[in-house]
């Protein structure tokens, strides 16, 4: 039963990783920006939600506030950090360092105002009930499942059926051609940041109400998103989501074999192995590197 219990926990963590990593992969796929400040978006959304709820807002309004701030931060990074850099140089590492720096600064800012410890709010949803003998599942698991399914359905519909979604996919394949056809690459990349940042919000809110959130989560989320994007195959949103789920499972299942302290390292062993032996990832195109 322990394995099943761990698997359930792993799926829950993995679903949240999947959403966040999909956001990262979407931004990277469309704009080629390695947006490692994505982790900062995550904690920003989490703390915004927390603060709004503590101010007495209804949870739906609080989620709106979190969404708004996350999207604003994404747009801010796109317009004021990445675009100026890409204008004059745009080497991969320059963008990466700038994003990293912004992530650190945002994390420090949040730590300054809210302290470095765990913050959480208790909601009735997290009380676990025994579903099968020995297997405990909290209602929040089903909420997470529903949210993930709905969000993914919406995102895939958007990317496959709408004009803007098509534009996003075109942007990743050939920005020059896109411009030649009179579409605005600027507007599309802003759209990628809006969507990608919004995808970090559900994970942030659900993490806040289940395990609690802390400023140091920024680095963890960044690492997981990055690992999932690489393992899933750079450029593939579906791959990133799948890999996020997989990493969440691995992180929880290894606990049955080794001590908990090693569980995070396990996901990085997976990452390292993928880079060495299968750099194109689960769903990447061959020769994509």
């Amino acid at each position: 039963m322990l394995l099943t219990q761990l698997a359930v926990a792993g799926i829950q963590t993995g679903m949240l990783y999947a959403l966040t990593a999909a956001g990262f992969a979407l931004i990277f796929g469309a704009t080629r920006v390695f947006h490692v400040a994505h982790g900062a978006t995550f904690i920003l959304a989490g703390y915004a939600f927390l603060e709004a709820v503590q101010l007495g807002l209804h949870w739906s309004l609080a989620s709106g506030v979190a969404l708004l701030l996350a999207v604003a931060f994404g747009l801010f990074m796109d317009a004021l950090v990445y675009r100026p850099i890409q204008k004059h140089e745009g080497s991969f590492f320059t963008v990466f360092v700038a994003s990293f720096g912004a992530g650190i600064a945002m994390q420090a800012l949040i730590q300054f105002f809210f302290g470095g410890g765990f913050a959480t709010i208790s909601v009735p949803l997290t009380r676990a009930a025994e579903v099968l003998p020995g297997l405990y599942i909290a209602p929040v698991f089903w909420v997470a499942l529903a949210v993930v399914v709905v969000v993914f359905a919406a995102v895939s519909l958007f990317l496959e059926r709408t004009h803007a979604g098509l534009g996003l996919r075109a942007l990743s394949e050939n920005p020059e051609l896109l411009r030649a056809y009179g579409l605005s690459a600027r507007r599309l990349s802003a759209l990628a940041f809006v969507l990608g940042s919004a995808l970090a919000v559900p994970g942030a809110i659900l993490t806040t109400v289940t395990t609690g959130i802390q400023p140091a989560d920024s680095a963890h989320v960044m690492l997981v998103s990055l690992a999932a994007t690489v393992v899933g195959g750079i450029g593939s949103i579906r791959g990133a989501a799948l890999a996020g789920l997989f990493l969440g499972l691995v992180e929880n299942l290894v606990v049955s074999v080794v001590d908990t302290q090693w569980s995070q390292a396990a996901s990085f062993v997976v990452l390292f192995a993928f880079i060495l032996f299968r750099p194109n990832g689960l769903m990447g195109r061959a020769g994509a590197r």
């Binding site: 991969f92 990466f96 990452l271 390292f272 880079i275 590197r289």
Partner: peptide, 10 residues
């Protein structure tokens, strides 16, 4: 590039 940064992070 990105892959190496990710590997060194790991």
């Amino acid at each position: 590039g990105e892959y190496f940064v990710a590997a060194s992070l790991g």
